[in-house]
Design a protein around this nucleic acid. Structure first.
Length: 617
RNA sequence: GCCCCGGUAGCUCAGUUGGAUAGAGCACGCGCCUUCUAAGCGCGUGGUCGGCGGUUCGAAUCCGCCCCGGGGCGCCA
């Protein structure tokens, strides 16, 4: 997203070297610098890399593209880098790299603690709004995406060396919470023993008991006085409940010690499920990430004041709105009764995140339906100049609107009995399926997991089930809806999380059986004589660029694509090149080192998804 | 009505940001475990990339207009 990030290029990536060399040659030939357009070749018959700039440059200069490609190629110093270069097709320059050059770069990668990722150029923080639970409500499948996508992006930015804030913007404030609280008080609930189910029931009960929909409709359609009087009598309890809720809200807002204590208990009970889900999902979200709506309550009046003072907000039908030049719909920041709205809270949060948290990138991982809302909030923030860090650097505000999770019938996911699928149900089932599969395989006497303690098998099974769920979610286009089909995800065949874990376990197994020490392996000379070895090595060298690309684009699916390709290339290598039974000791050690690097990169890549890579499965 | 997001193989989806003959996985057909984990590998069948036009050396990708599906549109969050 930032130029600084974009400019970073991994030193061990051959594309970086080729880019520099061809850049120099193009400048010599054409008299000016231009992007050489270095790309990895899609087809092995076109070599390892292709340089595509000659065609567009020739068009610009009105010359023959193949002749220009020839000229550029002649001017490029590739001694020790390329084994073969040729001009092909309309003017592609196809480059086949020298295996020794690739091996040298891979050696650099293997001793890099960051796997070749250059240090972050932007010293500001990245702020990620994730999870987004509501107090007194059960977590459902929508929270799955907000949580694991946000956590994965956080992990990517941590890998890139950025300071990351995971912000759990909980819905812990406002009338609905007060209504729930009021009802629990009236019911004389035992707050010490409250469960989430109790809260949920109270929340729903409160919504229902205060509903005056029929009466409101009667007013709206100007029903006769008889009908109105009848309904008013009927809705007397609803009014009373709402009055109580409002009194409770006032006490909460004014800091009434007793009410605040009960309110905190509500949050505690709600968040316990979040922490449990986070543990199951291997997601780094805990109490330290809680910064809910209530945190911003004392800043809301200031937000409205700031917009009013700068002339950006105006009064409209008694409410305060921020109008926009390019659209009809204004942003409502204060109700006619003086109350604030979620847009007000979000504006306060934007300012806190850019200024106080010093974020030059603030990512909101919130479902796609809120696109318009965030467009308005971000535009308003830009109008008033809140998209800047403490030292005045520009902040990028991004809404990463993810698609819905659908059932097999393409409708929002429901259980068989037609109820909402809670996140817990879903994760429990995934873990069960994973465990069943691991147990089944462990029963086979020839399996590497045969005879392991049950607790260990269960841990592997849970890791496998969760990997299936997370991979299915993160490896697709985040903005699209996707069909949640446990049967398919937990099939563990093909393009799945367990497929990657399996590749990792195979590598770990080879290394364990080799009998070689880590030092002997990590210091072995690399030779990449076989095509499968070289192809694997080339892909390993692209890890750093892939990670940078994800940081720039926020497309987590690039990680999945990279890892799937890595696993495929490893499997091809595994099939074509014996490691433990290699022809000679030097080849054996070289291949072991290739295995070790593959394993490190695969495990690191899986860690970007927060997927655990077991040694055996 | 206005705005936003999608449409790629029978199904579920990729497609390295405009590159060479559009790829996987399921499913279907065939082959590979006396060799490091067969949750694997190889081969085959399967396509008007929603439609029409445009931009250019080159389009699934960019632009315009349609068709179909989904979502959102002031005092809830």
């Amino acid at each position: 997203m930032t130029d600084a990030t974009h400019a970073q290029r991994p030193a061990c990536d051959p594309a970086t070297v080729l880019d520099a060399r061809f850049n120099r040659a193009i400048e010599a030939v054409c008299g000016r610098a231009a992007d050489p357009q270095v790309r990895a070749s899609g087809n092995p018959k076109f070599g390892d890399y292709q340089v595509n700039a000659a065609m567009s440059l020739a068009k610009e200069r009105g010359t023959n593209p193949r002749a220009l490609a020839d000229e550029i190629l002649k001017a490029t110093d590739l001694a020790g880098i390329a084994a073969k270069c040729e001009v092909a097709g309309p003017g592609f320059i196809n480059v086949t790299l020298e295996p020794a050059f690739v091996a040298a770069r891979l050696g650099e990668l293997s001793v890099s603690p960051t796997l070749g990722i250059p240090p972050a150029a932007d010293p500001h923080a990245v702020v990620i709004d994730l999870c987004g639970v509501n107090v007194a409500k059960q977590m459902h499948v929508g929270h799955l995406r907000a949580t694991i996508i946000g956590d994965s992006l956080a992990r990517v930015f941590e890998r890139l060396g950025r300071k990351v804030w995971r912000e759990n913007h909980l819905g812990d404030w406002g009338l609905p919470i007060a209504m729930t609280l009021a009802r629990l008080v009236r019911e004389k609930a035992d707050f010490a023993r409250l469960t989430l189910d109790d809260l949920n029931a109270a929340y729903r009960g409160a919504q229902k008991e205060t509903s005056t929909a029929d009466l409101d409709a009667a007013y709206e359609f100007r029903c006769g006085p008889h009908r109105i009087a009848e309904l008013e009598l009927q809705y007397e309890p609803a009014r009373a409940a709402m009055e109580h809720a409002k009194r409770t809200l006032v006490r909460l807002q004014s800091g009434d010690a007793e009410i605040v204590r009960l309110w905190e208990r509500l949050i505690e009970v709600t968040m316990e499920q979040v922490y449990e889900a986070a543990r199951t999902l291997n997601v780094k979200v805990g109490p330290e990430n809680n910064r809910g709506e209530s945190f911003y309550r004392d800043r809301l009046a200031g937000v409205v004041e700031a917009f009013a003072k700068s002339g950006l907000a105006k009064s409209d039908k008694g409410a305060m709105v921020v109008p926009f030049a390019d659209r009809e719909r204004p942003l409502l920041i204060q109700k006619s009764d003086g109350g604030f709205l979620y847009a007000t809270t979000d504006l306060a949060a934007v300012r806190f995140r850019t200024y106080e948290l010093d974020g030059s990138l603030v990512v909101y991982v919130v479902d796609a339906r809120q696109r318009d809302h965030f467009k308005d909030v971000f535009d308003a923030a830009r109008l008033i100049g809140w998209n800047t860090t403490k030292d005045g650097a520009e902040s990028t505000l991004v809404h990463l609107g993810f698609g819905a999770v659908l059932g097999a019938d393409k409708k929002p996911l429901k259980t068989r009995s037609g109820e909402n699928f809670t996140l817990k149900d879903l994760l429990d089932e995934a873990c069960e399926r994973g465990t069943a599969e691991v147990m089944r395989r462990a029963a086979d006497a020839t399996s590497p997991t045969h005879g392991l303690p049950e607790a260990e098998l269960r841990a592997i099974g849970a890791a496998v089930g969760i990997a299936a769920v997370k991979y299915a979610d993160l490896s697709g286009d985040l903005t699209k809806d996707y069909v949640f089909d446990l049967d398919r995800m937990v099939a563990f065949e093909g393009d799945t999380g367990p497929y990657l874990q399996y590749a990792h376990a195979r590598i770990a197994s080879i290394l364990a059986k080799s009998g070689e020490g880590a030092d002997a392996i990590s210091s072995a000379p690399l030779s990449l004589a076989e095509p499968a070895e070289k192809a694997l090595a080339l892909h390993l060298l692209r890890y750093a660029q892939m990670t940078l690309d994800v940081g720039r684009s926020l497309e987590t699916n690039r990680v999945g694509l990279y890892l799937r390709t890595l696993a495929e290339l490893f499997n091809a290598f595994y099939q074509a090149c014996p490691v433990l039974k290699a022809d000679d000791a030097a080849t054996r050690l070289s291949r072991l080192r290739l295995c070790a690097i593959s394993r490190t990169v695969l495990a690191d890549g899986l860690s970007l998804y927060g997927i655990v890579a077991p040694e055996r499965m």
